[in-house]
Each structure stands twice: as C-alpha cells, then as structure tokens.
C-alpha cells in the first residue's frame, strides 16, 4: 500500500445552507487507508457536498469532524489538506501545457525542477500520455484530459484522492474503457480514494465499497454484492436494480409468515414456469425484451403485479398463463418498510 495513503473518518459531518436547506445531514463513515469508496446516489443526495467538505471547498456545519488519520482537518484550508482532486469538467489550466499542468502541484510546493520533471515523466507514462507532454490541453480529447487531471492530482502524492463525477462528461464508450483504466490505476497507486458518482455500474467497477446516499443521508455502506443482495432500505434496493414487493396477501398464499407487511425479491430471482406450474399462477400482461433477457410483467390471479425475468430464448407471449415460484432464500426484508 502507498505510504502516503491515510485513513479517513467522517464524524457528524453536516451541511445546512443559509436558507435552512440541509444538503447533508449528520453523516458518519470510516474509510480505511488505501480503500476506494464510492459515494453513490441521485443528484441532490448530498454526495458532492460531502466530497467537497472533505476537500475543504465547502465548510460543513459546526461540530463536523473530518479526520485524516488522527488529524482533524475541518478547519484546515483546502490548500493545506494535501489532497488530490479530479473534477467533472477536468479543470485543467488552459494556459499551461500537459506537463506544466501535472507539475503544478509540485511547483507550488517548491519541489526542485529535477525531481518535479522526474515525477511528471513517471505519471505521464502511467496514464499513457508521454507523447503529449508538450501539447496544449485544448488539443486533447476528453478522455486524455481526464487522464491528465488524474496525473495532476496524484503527482504531489496526496493523502487522499477525491474524484467528483470524473467520467460523467465523457461519452458512453469512452466512459467504459476509462472506467476500467481508472480502477486499475487507483489500485496501482494504492491511494485512499473517494469517488462520487450517480452511475452504479461505474461505482461497482471502481470502488471497494459503496456508500449509497439519498436526501443527505448515507443509507447503506457495503460492497457491491451485499448492497445488491441484502439491501438495507427500499431506496438502496431500487437504486441498484429493480424489486418486487410481495404484499401480505401474496405471502400468505405462498405460505410465508413474516412480521413485516411485505417481503422483497428481485425480478431475476422469481422463477417463471411456462407450463403453468408453480406456487401461484398468473397471466403475462407485458413483455419487455432486453437483449440478454426478457422482463415479464405478470398479474397474479386476483392479486398484485409481479416483475420476473426469463431468458431471451424462452418462448413467452402476452396473455399466456404461467406459474411463479419464489425461492425462500431470495426473499429479503427492508428496515425502512415495516
């Protein structure tokens, strides 16, 4: 692991604007040194506010604590926090060439020219931009610019790397390739990284753990598999894919006893039998072809509508009668839905 990497503890960090709007409610999260954590959520969920508070670009409410290792940096100005940050729209210095951009953080800290140049060369090689060292940043493509921005942020060996929607400005194809490259580079650097995004694929590809945020609150922090399979809240369950809520009537009919009013199951876990055999039967009301599979909307006789996935090869049509089964191990409860 990178010796510069620091652990980060967020304690009671909140941000309330002058007009009383709470962009971020009292939040706690611990990030291990060298760990990559994604702050994931829809726009306005407070993820960027939290990131900018960690960066020192936003002043959180009184009582907030942001610990880098054991040091509370909440009153330390951004320029003294020794962080690296990558911005959505790159924010490269237009008056400097690629090498000068990467060197900037070293230069303002008074690193000698020889050491500076060596570090710049090393990083440009890492991001495969050695040939572009003397190019003006305006001559680069979006993906190249973001790689320069990454090299620039990493060059001064920051304690933590903060990424604010780093891939959002890129087109879909490029986004995917840069996403994988970014995931690889961050692991090579072994740096503590906090990555803000609204794209769950991106978060899953890059981060070790994901903190799903909604309305200024972290709803759940876990690895991608746990979030998907054992979501703690309805919001998390719905933000990462789709869910069926089985109401108490349906539960009774399949013989499941539950203290909760509803239990939940993902569409791909509902078993569909085209021979009309199963715990319950129903009628297909709609089929959505999705390339790798088909999603069927099935009305259970006299009861609710269920979303269920079948393979793309399966012959299934609207109005067909089908059987449905609900594997018990795939049923889960949600804490915020009683």
């Amino acid at each position: 692991m990178n010796p510069d990497a620091t652990s980060i503890s967020i304690r009671n960090v909140a941000k309330t604007y002058d007009d009383g709007t709470a962009a971020l409610k009292a939040t706690d999260i611990d990030i291990k040194a060298g760990e990559i954590v994604a702050l994931l959520g829809p726009s306005g969920c407070g993820k960027t506010t939290l990131l900018r508070s960690i960066a020192g670009l936003e002043t959180p409410d009184v009582g907030s604590e942001i610990l880098f290792g054991n040091e509370n940096v909440v009153d330390v100005p951004s320029e003294k926090r020794h962080i690296g940050m990558v911005f959505q729209h790159y924010a490269l210095f237009p008056t400097m060439n690629v090498a000068a951009n990467v060197a900037y953080g070293l230069k303002v800290r008074g690193v000698a020219a020889a050491d500076r140049n060596a570090r710049v060369d090393e990083l440009l090689e890492k991001v495969r931009l050695t040939a572009f060292a003397n190019k003006r940043v305006q001559e680069l493509s979006g993906g190249q610019r973001q790689r320069v921005a990454l090299a620039r942020a990493i060059a001064p060996r920051p304690r933590v790397l903060l990424l604010d929607e780093p891939l959002t400005a890129l087109d879909a194809k490029l986004k995917e390739s840069l996403r994988d490259e970014l995931a690889e580079l961050l692991r090579q650097f072994g740096i503590t990284a906090i990555h803000v995004t609204h794209d769950q694929q991106e978060a899953m590809a890059i981060a070790d753990r994901l903190a799903v945020m909604n309305r200024g609150v972290i709803e759940q922090v876990a690895d991608a598999r746990t979030l998907y399979e054992k979501p703690a809240t309805a919001f998390v369950a719905e933000f990462l894919g789709h869910i069926n809520a089985l109401d108490c009537d349906t539960l009774k009919r399949i013989g499941v006893e539950s203290a909760a009013d509803s239990l939940y199951m993902r569409p791909e876990h509902v078993r569909v039998d085209v021979q009309d055999r199963g715990e319950l039967t129903g009628q297909v009301t709609r089929i959505i072809y999705q390339g790798d599979r088909q999603r069927a909307l099935i009305a259970i006789d006299g009861a609710q509508l269920i979303k269920a996935d079948v393979t793309a090869a399966e012959t299934i049509r609207v109005d067909q009668r089908v059987g449905l089964s609900f594997p018990r191990e795939r049923l889960f409860a949600l804490s915020d839905k009683k």
């Binding site: 100005p77 951004s78 303002v108």
Partner: peptide, 23 residues
C-alpha cells in the same frame, strides 16, 4: 470555469498569491 480552476489549484496546494498570479 475559472472558479473550478481556482478550486483545482487550491486542492493542489497553491496559496492565494500563487493562484491569483499563476492561474
């Protein structure tokens, strides 16, 4: 855009004079 440049320079450790004159 200029505000973003200023913030980028801040996170890179530049003090106000360095940011004002250099960026």
């Amino acid at each position: 855009e200029l505000r973003a440049l200023d913030e980028a320079a801040r996170t890179l450790g530049a003090n106000f004079a360095q940011r004002f004159l250099g960026v």
